[in-house]
């Protein structure tokens, strides 16, 4: 006959294997969808004193502009924000002016005008539906927050960029998909975007796949958390102050309580 639940029946069978089950469960949690744990790099922005390498971020911006922006928007970043990673006001103005921004003229008709620093990066597609239609049904995600929107984001994006390769013999790769073990489900619609020499860096750095991937991660890290350096600097000052404050309060407390003994 049917037991009250599957669980009860199993429970009777597995009572002695509880401890083993816990370890197995932990393993199950990590191995889901066969997504490989990302490779861990020693980023300059790791740790409490971490900062974004501005040169690297500028190169990463070049990678975004020349490769990624064909499909991925960066809607939350304004041209003026680029001054944070070392571009001058004049460079930012010139860059903004090189983009055409949709606007309205005095008669209310839709028109295009050159960008200003206060404008935001122009998305490659007018809306999500168009983006999906142009990319086999899956809209390429906006990259402004991608580092925060994925677990261990920086390492994940780097691993994804460098992780493309031929599928193992026992894996069948679907039509229009590409194999990458770092992606959940191991297959994604994006072809490998980066490769050796894909861009020619303005500062002359040699553009290997590894270099391009590191640089684009630095750029995207800044794009996702522009406040990071200020936040960490403030954190150090705050914690030092609090340590002093707490220490002092503790001494004062002991002082006050000494009366009782």
């Amino acid at each position: 006959m049917q037991p009250i639940t599957d669980g009860n029946a199993l429970m009777k069978k597995n009572l002695l294997l509880i401890a083993l089950s816990i370890t197995v469960a932990a393993g199950v949690a990590f191995a889901e969808g066969d997504q490989r744990e990302p490779r861990k790099l020693d980023w300059s922005f790791n740790g409490i004193f971490g900062t974004v390498d501005k040169q690297s971020a500028q190169r990463g911006f070049q990678v975004y502009k020349e490769v990624c922006s064909a499909c991925h928007s960066l809607n939350r970043v304004a041209f003026r924000n680029l001054q944070d990673i070392g571009f001058t006001e004049a460079e930012v103005k010139a860059l903004a002016a090189s983009y055409q921004i949709a606007d309205m003229n005095e008669s209310g008709e839709a028109m295009q005008r050159p960008g200003k620093p206060s404008d935001y990066f122009v998305p490659p597609f007018p809306n999500e539906k168009a983006a999906a239609a142009a990319n086999g049904g899956a809209a390429p995600p906006d990259l402004s927050l991608i580092i925060k929107a994925r677990k261990d984001g920086a390492n994940y994006v780097y691993s994804l960029m460098t992780g493309f390769g031929p599928a193992p013999a026992d894996v069948k790769v679907g039509d229009g998909l590409y194999y990458n073990p770092y992606f959940p489900g191991s297959q994604l619609r994006m072809p490998p975007p980066l490769s050796d020499g894909r861009v020619t860096y303005a500062d002359g750095t040699s553009a290997s796949l590894d270099q391009e991937s590191r640089d684009v991660v630095a750029f995207l890290q800044w794009a996702a958390e522009p406040e990071m350096e200020e936040r960490k600097e403030m954190g150090i000052k705050v914690l030092i102050y609090l340590a002093i404050f707490t220490g002092f309060m503790y001494i004062a407390k002991r002082n006050v309580w000494r009366k009782l003994h």
């Binding site: 102050y241 002093i244 404050f245 002092f248 309060m249 004062a252």
Partner: peptide
């Protein structure tokens, strides 16, 4: 005095 000063700064 010190506690007040620390507190005010905070």
């Amino acid at each position: 005095l010190t506690a007040s000063a620390l507190g005010a700064v905070g």
